[in-house]
Computed example of a mutant assay.
Amino acid sequence: MLEKLLEWDQQALIYLNNLGSEQFDSFWLTVTKFPTWIPLFLLIIFLLVKTHSPKESIGIMFSFIFMLLFVTAAIFLTKENVGRLRPINDASVNTVLRALTKPSDYSFFSGHAASSFSIAMLSIFYLRKKSKWIYMILVWPLLFTFSRMYLGVHYPLDILVGSMVGILCAYFFYRMHQRLKVPYTR
């Protein structure tokens, strides 16, 4: 069963990666970098500060910081312990991929997926009652994570698991913040 799943994973990546063309390479190389998204991060911070009291904004910022520290640790520990080669470093598939970058660390699970979905979902949890447009933020992690397959550095399962980890972490840290703030708001 696991072998069949991994075979599907490779075939799906090969298909998706080979949809790419040189005319879009620079776009996806830009999309995949965190600095590209700094204006979005600043907008999130602005919206959080604008829609919450100063005291609440500080608590929210701490929940983002602690969540990102937790997600980063989970990514590092999982990659080192699982040790799944990136597609571009795997001899069984790298000859049929369009590889535009060549990171040397491991693939499972995607740090880009986990971090982007955790930030987006935590933003949604805090802002969904304040702005109906906040759900548009999901475009970011979708583009961000697809770029990883386009570049040949992650398998679809890496993306899927990373996305789920990010969503679950966002939910956990939102609920923890809600529980911790209740005693202080009475």
Rank of each mutant, 00 (worst) to 15 (best):
L6D: 12
E56A: 14
E80C: 09
P103W: 03
K181R: 15
S104N: 15
H154L: 07
M164Y: 12
S116A: 06
Q178F: 15
I134E: 06
L97R: 03
F108G: 00
Q10E: 13
L16N: 00
D9L: 01
I124Q: 09
D25I: 06
V153L: 05
M176H: 14
S110Y: 00
L180Q: 10
W28K: 02
F117I: 00
F34S: 14
W133P: 15
G152C: 03
I45H: 15
S123K: 07
N94G: 02
F64N: 07
Y155E: 02
F27D: 01
L40S: 11
A74K: 09
F109W: 03
A113W: 00
I88F: 15
L151D: 02
A12I: 09
F146M: 03
P141Y: 02
I88R: 12
D158I: 06
H177I: 14
I38D: 05
Y155V: 05
V31N: 00
Y135K: 04
I167G: 00
Y126H: 12
S57D: 13
S107L: 01
V71C: 03
R148M: 06
L29A: 00
L160P: 09
S107D: 02
H154D: 08
A120P: 10
L19H: 07
V165A: 00
F108H: 02
W28M: 01
I60S: 09
L42Y: 04
K129T: 13
L85K: 12
A113Q: 03
S107C: 01
Y126D: 10
K132I: 10
A12T: 06
P103H: 05
L168M: 08
S26E: 13
R128M: 11
I167N: 04
F117K: 05
V139C: 04
F144K: 00
N94T: 07
L143C: 02
K102S: 11
V96F: 10
T185Q: 15
L19P: 04
N94E: 01
K130E: 13
I45L: 13
L138F: 00
I60M: 10
W28C: 02
W133C: 13
L97F: 03
G152L: 00
G83Y: 08
S21C: 13
I38Y: 08
G111R: 03
G83Q: 06
H154V: 07
A114I: 03
L142M: 11
I58F: 14
R86V: 05
L47F: 09
L168C: 09
I38R: 05
N94Y: 04
I137K: 08
E7K: 12
M1N: 15
L77I: 12
F24D: 15
T72G: 15
Y15M: 05
F146C: 06
Y174C: 02
L69Q: 11
T95F: 15
V153K: 04
Y126R: 10
T95K: 15
L13T: 05
F46P: 14
A170Q: 08
F146E: 01
T95S: 14
R148N: 08
L122H: 11
Y171R: 11
V161K: 04
L168I: 07
K4V: 10
V165G: 01
D90W: 09
S107M: 04
L143G: 04
K132T: 07
M164S: 12
Y15L: 09
V182I: 14
F173M: 09
